[in-house]
Design a protein around this nucleic acid. Sequence first.
DNA 1: CTGAAAGCGCTAACAA
DNA 2: TTGTTAGCGCTTTCAG
Lengths: 345, 345
Amino acid sequence: MPKPRSAPRLADVAARAGVSIATASRSLAGRDGVSEAVAAHVREVALGMGYVANVHARTLAGGATSTVGLIVHEIGDPYFSEIASGVIGVAAKRGLTVQICHSGRDPRNELHQIRTLIAHRTDAIIVAGSGYTEPSLQAESNAALQAFQEGGGRVAVIGRHFIAADSVRPANEAAGHAVTAHLLELGHRRIGVLAGPDVLTTVVDRLAGVATALAAGGLSIADLPVLHTDFTRNGGHAGAERLLAEHPDLTALVALNDAMAIGVLSVLRSHGIAVPQQMSVAGVDDVAVAADLAPSLTTVRLPMTEMGELALTMALKPPSARRRRKNTGHELIVRDSTGPAPAVG
Amino acid sequence: MPKPRSAPRLADVAARAGVSIATASRSLAGRDGVSEAVAAHVREVALGMGYVANVHARTLAGGATSTVGLIVHEIGDPYFSEIASGVIGVAAKRGLTVQICHSGRDPRNELHQIRTLIAHRTDAIIVAGSGYTEPSLQAESNAALQAFQEGGGRVAVIGRHFIAADSVRPANEAAGHAVTAHLLELGHRRIGVLAGPDVLTTVVDRLAGVATALAAGGLSIADLPVLHTDFTRNGGHAGAERLLAEHPDLTALVALNDAMAIGVLSVLRSHGIAVPQQMSVAGVDDVAVAADLAPSLTTVRLPMTEMGELALTMALKPPSARRRRKNTGHELIVRDSTGPAPAVG
DNA sequence: CTGAAAGCGCTAACAA
DNA sequence: TTGTTAGCGCTTTCAG
């Protein structure tokens, strides 16, 4: 059975309204050059027929296009779903639709998704999430994005270096600094760090913040245990188990994102270690649930939703000669998971 | 400065390869009717030029289209981001791209999003999230979806009644039954229910499950306090405050989704009420963090990711005469937030 | 096996 | 103010 064809076309509307196809087009597009009476009539007819313009034809013909692409690591991760929410929010306001793809933090797959989005001729492409410290890993993505921009496409990245495009830059280093300074202030000296893979720039940047805060406090990060595991809840879980086993003297654990911190809290709970009395825990991001964990999580708030909004807003502006950079703010949110360092045993 | 035009077109590839545009098309599409030698050559040239077919032109010309639409309440909500993850996962495997829109649980806006997706001529549209008990609220959406299907479009809904399309049906009633039965078994009799708006079918269905479990236990839901607030964390928070104030004798609180349960736990914690010693709490959904709350949340697991996968898989199958229905399973997950009812004071 | 040409539905000059 | 017409880039008969 052949796919039935039925959606009314502009020509149908025009015929029914008794005008030319051009007039119909103008009326519907709200462009002027049509008498208001005719325009209104056409619109009414169109509505009556349930006419909806074919976006592909419209785009092909050079009309305004209407979709933007968003690449995230994984939409199920709150960090990214909050960013996506911001992007979708401003897109909806502008009548745009958002295509979302998973990169899975795999450079090859990311490249593939970028290509796909380019094929879809989206107005803009937003790439969210950490890049790689090793530039060669994203050289191809970079080139593709570059070509896309040269072809008139717009690009904005969130939390990425090494890509020549407008960018929103989360305060990663400042965030790392802030949590660490907070812990130091509470008297902690034996601090364990749960970091994600060190090929991720986000991890490296946050770690750099940790290091400078430590240095300012007269400590060296080289003297503290830093574990690189997955940048996820399970990575935090596994890392905490190991840190606890190998460094029984720690009084605080800082996780480089909230997902990891959640894993850490879980381990501590199962070991019956009181937080924050015996061990302080802090994260970075301030995902929505952070406030509702028990104990509620001390963390550094990064405005994810706003980052998404910002990125799309920048991407939708006419391109500027030099690329724009927007640095986000950050805010230390002290909750119940951190407390004074226990007196030395 | 005019928008530069640069993406190579099929014609460019054809010219460069020294073949006709038709041959180029066939080679790239992997269709036969071309000598393998020529095809290979064309492919190589295309690759070298970084050629990517224009999806709009391809779609317009009647070629295979390649995108599906997904409408969710709000992508920042874990329930929906997990569903989205499932959808995106299978889409990626099939070389499809996913357009995600927010309905905001507003029937008018939902209709608008459906229209948008139809304009984009997506292959399929998936609508996720509760519908309304009042059919008139979604009559227009229904009609639009109907027309879309008659035009050859595919539709699948998740957790929705009253829409003539393939559907994935979460075990809402069974879930409501399961949590309630669990609480009853633990000896609870004074149970408060935190429900979302009663215009949502999901709420009504889960509530029905609660009622039958209660009835089986010799109780009537009419005798218990049922509060209809927002179907969100804050709704649960506000509702719990009220329930606690007005019904100090309750020993258990069931929230009709985990988001609400999280709000409930937060209230209990701030009131210093021990869970589960003084008050048991249970939710429905089993979002990812449920296991990491403290106390970990007893809930009923609904396979959100799988629901998303299922929905797209169904939608991608050739349409069948009568609509398909897929009921999901459910599983009571007993964790630490529920315990025996305290002895009567 | 390969090429020429007719659209797909729409927008945007260009005429009238 | 309105209509005519030439594409946008691709797929797909239909010829060769």
